[in-house]
């Protein structure tokens, strides 16, 4: 077996590892099905592209790249996109958390108005919260 076949097997193995990891993590409910499906599809794509090099040969020939090089390029691009997507998700979650936090504070103040004698707990949350960038 020549080196390029070894490389393709290695990459296919990594794809299978991604699928197995996604399945294990999803079964332990650390990952929602929505995200697990995405990772499994990605892993399957890696396996297919690594083992069926004729599929990408037109591209590699045109660019003068080895199949391994092309797959590495695609992998880094995919990782970048996933990172951007996660940052967008995190920004959305932050905005939602902010809306909810403000709504809770306003509701608590209304409850205090309605029940003036109820001992609203003024004790700060354990250890307080980390200051936001100010």
């Amino acid at each position: 077996m020549d080196a390029s076949v070894d490389q393709e097997l290695l990459i296919a193995g990594a794809g299978i590892a991604v699928i197995v990891l996604a399945l294990v993590v999803a079964r332990r409910r650390l990952l929602t099905v929505r995200y697990a499906v995405g990772w499994i599809v990605l892993g399957a794509l890696i396996v297919v592209l690594a083992l069926c090099t004729p599929l990408i040969e037109p591209v590699t020939d045109r660019l003068g790249m080895t199949p391994t090089g092309l797959l590495l390029f695609l992998a880094s691009g995919t990782l970048l996109l996933i990172c951007v997507q996660l940052s967008i998700t995190a920004s959305g979650l932050t905005a939602r958390q902010r809306d909810l936090t403000e709504a809770i504070a306003l509701l608590e103040a209304r409850v205090a108005e309605i029940e003036p004698r109820s001992p609203t707990s003024d004790t700060p949350p354990a250890g307080g919260t980390e200051p936001h960038a100010r």
Binding site: R98, A105, A112, P125, G128
Partner: peptide, 13 residues
């Protein structure tokens, strides 16, 4: 009257 934010949001929040 006090509005108590359960987590720190920063001045803007």
């Amino acid at each position: 009257p006090v509005l108590r934010l359960p987590v720190n949001l920063g001045v803007g929040g």
